[in-house]
Design a protein around this nucleic acid. Sequence first.
DNA 1: CAGCCTTGCACAATCGATTGCAGTGCGAAA
DNA 2: TTTCGCACTGCAATCGATTGTGCAAGGCTG
Lengths: 348, 348
Amino acid sequence: MIKGRSETSVTIHDVARSCGLSSSTVSRALNGKHVEYRISDKARNRVLETADRLGFKANWKAKTLTDRRSFQVGILFQAAFPEFRGIFAEILTSLNNTLEAAGYHLLFVPVHDERGLQLIQQHRLDGLILCDPHSSEIHSMLHQIDAPLVLLNHLAPDTRYSQVIPDEEQGMRLALDHLFAFGHEKIAFFRMGRHSSPTHFSLERRRSAFNTVMAERGLAGSAVTADESVDSFLSRVKVGPDGHTAIVTYSHIEAAFLLRALLQKGLRVPQDVSLIAYNNAFPMDALFPAITVIDVPASKMGEVGAKLLLEQINGESKPRHVTLPESLIVRESTGPAPRGGSGPIARL
Amino acid sequence: MIKGRSETSVTIHDVARSCGLSSSTVSRALNGKHVEYRISDKARNRVLETADRLGFKANWKAKTLTDRRSFQVGILFQAAFPEFRGIFAEILTSLNNTLEAAGYHLLFVPVHDERGLQLIQQHRLDGLILCDPHSSEIHSMLHQIDAPLVLLNHLAPDTRYSQVIPDEEQGMRLALDHLFAFGHEKIAFFRMGRHSSPTHFSLERRRSAFNTVMAERGLAGSAVTADESVDSFLSRVKVGPDGHTAIVTYSHIEAAFLLRALLQKGLRVPQDVSLIAYNNAFPMDALFPAITVIDVPASKMGEVGAKLLLEQINGESKPRHVTLPESLIVRESTGPAPRGGSGPIARL
DNA sequence: CAGCCTTGCACAATCGATTGCAGTGCGAAA
DNA sequence: TTTCGCACTGCAATCGATTGTGCAAGGCTG
């Protein structure tokens, strides 16, 4: 029977009494310190057997009270940001796999204000992982935190905490090179307008990568970036054979809504417009046409993030910045640039 | 400065020393027991001021060591099941909001075997919330757990734990009535074949609700259920004006893949086939056509689940089963049944 | 057979809080 | 002046573990 806050919870003393030994001996036997502290095999086996029989499970709170470490790590994320949701489960899973292997557990830190950060203190968290934090409240509090910290998907100009980010410029380059090879020149970068804060680094990185790569090709003039609603974007920017012939979107969310709007306008993808999205999340491969994506290595990010945190907790290394490569998954939404001039149905 | 496992963490004794009082007085002043234990206002204010100045934060582990309660609740979910992912973030958020208001925090319980359940014991968790658990390992271990338990989206024939489920039959009835009103008679229920276990209750409930409602209308003969790949389904079941004219899918995942396959075959939605999905998740409103959905009340489920758990923890009530209503969100994927006979392009 | 080293274990302090109970000091009553 | 009582606080035990140190046996040597 697995009990929670059980009144009859069996303690180390129960085990000690039950096998006629002291609690210190039990503790040492149970923690494999039998050689260091010279516990006889006989005593050790007796302890092991009794503990098993009684179903003894060490109380984590007592166990970590002496220790400085809590073996708990906080994970802070803002579920409010849907762009991240698509890959959140993946990140969470890989984070957890890595941490669990090291004996750590994840405590959810829900709030984004000072109360949330106090959890670090109250629970004596060994570290904190921030998933794609782009609210200015969090950002302004980061420097107050004196605990190992890992930022996922958030490149801040600070070397005091580890950061794991995908190489957005390289991903964007893959995407644009793919489009260039198809003859596209007038290309747009699109994000659905929300509260774009100055701390929204992944947006900034993708946008500036777009501008950089376009400029390198001498196409700065035909590059357009947008941060607005789909309707507003499509009414402002001419899309199709006689306008911009390809669009790269900030996330999979934009891609889905944009595809819908394009189809509604009677535009064909990729015959009239090519489409590439960041994030290989559902439903990019389930759309018709399936969307070519820049694959952000979510699972790898979780794994690396966890490792960086563990390194810091163990004092094995200083905070580091790690950049992970992105890759391009070519599907059906990209193709040769249309000839231009004689576009199909213009608009509704 | 907010510290984690800080070496210089300020304790209650530091506060006591700093204001020339004993740690017991500090404790009592800090916990509002000044009236019960007759702490003078002078002493109390001095403590409060000193604690604040020193940035004292009570060590949660020490605080809850005496107490039976840990004020931590475990959340167990299997990220492997994508159907649930679409609404997981929503559930998590509302769970957390409710629990946090009561001073509880969520500990992530990752593993699905006995190790995972031992966390309950080790961390003296006050309770456990299981999100849509349908692996037989978990199921076979449930009865071993002697702690307040809430199952979300998992109706098990057991009254020892609280359960929160959406009213699948009512949702299915809304969906089918909607289709009946459009004249549909040959209707299919579709799920993408995966490891359908006997403990996969939400699938069972939806499927049997489908069969029940169809039978009530005397349409048992024209009802088809499927649990296979999209390709296999479409090659086995004739879909379109001269076959099944409407499909209800187990989740939003199926809907997206199915829509893609239908469009690929040249079938029009809803002119040739109508489509309804469970879960109002992304990208149901971003597809073209936007998908009519049965809205599973994810946020409400989280809130109610948290409340049921708190009730049990506080001993205020016995485990209860709560059923929450679903609703239908009509979009573009449903319309009048086609005439039949002269269907459009048959298949590729 | 005394002295010594090893082996094997128990005692007690400690982590950071909470809490029952025992004090201290003061004024008032006797 | 002694005593009683009340207002206020400190002492010490406790929660369930870990760990430094001390102390008995027992085996060995000389």
